[in-house]
Write a protein that binds this DNA or RNA. Structure first.
Lengths: 243, 243
DNA sequence: CGGAGGCTTGAGCCCTTTCAATGTCTGTGG
DNA sequence: CCACAGACATTGAAAGGGCTCAAGCCTCCG
């Protein structure tokens, strides 16, 4: 189980963290985190939980989804290592969404009330977290136009581009090659498509020489082509090294 | 041109305002607002503007959209009177989105930097605005699953339900009857559909006895039916009188 | 009275879904 | 070391929801 040490490492790469002062960073780090190791599919803060909590993804991937009565599922966000998520819990504890691990990994969570007191004592910390939810809102907005106005090819291409940039920003060394630990069914629930159709789209991207897929490893062979097909502009990610 | 007086009236109903103390309210009200009267279709803060600004919709309706290179448009949010919007400008000035008036109306705008200084001096005000962007994020998320996982009927039904609740919360006296100043083409750009198909869906909702349409006046005849068809749960709106 | 924008309607097409079956890989237990 | 289960990926055929194209209509407004 990782703790302060690995958290410390994380902070330096934490996106929400770019605008934090040293003092604020310290304030956050000194909060009572609880680290847990979870398996793929495990829920983070089950719907039944009364305990509102925010969390940092120390390692592994996670997603947040809403499930409709007919069983359909929409994945509204995917979290990569070092993401700070669950801030929405501060404002609306129960919104019918659930967050689960995509892969096994470690989560450092903190009780909402503890974070709230820290915030009250530290306005610039509050500002950083505010910014974090603003970035999340921008991503939602981008996904909205992605699902609402692009065809299947464009949607998938856009998702791949986004992940490439986010993963590069978060951790990965090499740009165009990364691991995306999602099944085609999960990609479908993200893109508002069907698993079957995602499969066919992926194949066509492959045949067009844009990407290569090996297990969950993705290699983008033609970034220009993929980005233009997706009409991708990374500005909304607020990533430092966005290119 | 309306000014302090009408702004004052607005504050009492302002959603972002529910959790503001009297002092914070005063702080906001004393800021240098610029009131403008705009026509339908006018841009609020044109894309060419270097001046970042946030605004309150004093009267009329507005929307925020993104336009794709192929000309397709996705409306990502609709603002009703008393909405505080454009907070995203504080974090990312240019994100390829544009905000325009849906109807003629008045906008009270404030330069971002003025708001920023006010925020620095007033942490609880910052908290209220943070909450505002959190609510907006929640709406995005809801729209995401709406477009991603519901068929055309469900999407339109959900939009109508949302507007009914928001308008009731914002101003309207009677519940199930309200004015929605959007053309079918704009509704289509909101729901990720085509104007033609929106027309047919609207007709089927009418034939099913769920709603009545007269010009831009909408009457919901069967709230239960419409809400269940849309799987609508108003919790995400964070509205006081949500029922 | 003419025009423009918005609403309707019809017909045909196509992208995406559904349904169903087959193939592939990995981990497990005998 | 092989058999077997389970989770994913892949494929084919057929149906369908929504789109496109195109024309007709209505209403408001100058």
């Amino acid at each position: 189980m990782s703790n302060r040490a690995s958290l410390q490492r994380l902070w330096s790469s934490l996106r929400a963290n770019q605008h934090l002062s040293q003092a604020d960073r310290q304030a956050l780090l000194s909060l009572p985190f609880t680290c847990r190791t979870l398996a793929a599919g495990d829920a983070i803060g089950r719907a039944s939980d009364r305990i509102r909590l925010c969390a940092i993804l120390v390692s592994g991937f996670a997603y947040c989804s809403k499930i409709l009565p007919d069983g359909a599922r929409q994945i509204v966000s995917v979290h990569v290592p070092a993401d700070f998520f669950g801030l929405n819990n501060l404002f609306q504890p129960h919104n019918g969404h659930e967050t689960r691990m995509l892969t096994p990994g470690e989560v450092a969570s903190i009780a909402a009330h503890a974070l709230e007191t820290a915030i009250r004592a530290n306005p610039t910390l509050q500002g950083a977290l505010w910014r974090q939810t603003a970035v999340e809102a921008a991503m939602f907005s981008e996904w909205l136009t992605n699902i609402g106005r692009r065809d299947a090819q464009g949607r998938i291409a856009h998702l791949l581009c986004e992940f490439a940039v986010r993963l590069r920003a978060a951790q990965a060394p090499e740009s165009t090659r990364f691991e995306l630990p999602m099944t085609q069914a999960q990609l479908a629930d993200t893109a508002g498509l069907t698993a079957v159709h995602v499969n066919r789209v992926l194949q066509s991207l492959r045949r067009a020489g844009l990407v290569e897929l090996d297990k969950r490893k993705i290699t983008i062979n033609d970034w220009e082509g993929l980005a233009s097909m997706a009409d991708f502009d990374p500005a909304y990610l607020q990533s430092e090294r966005a290119t």
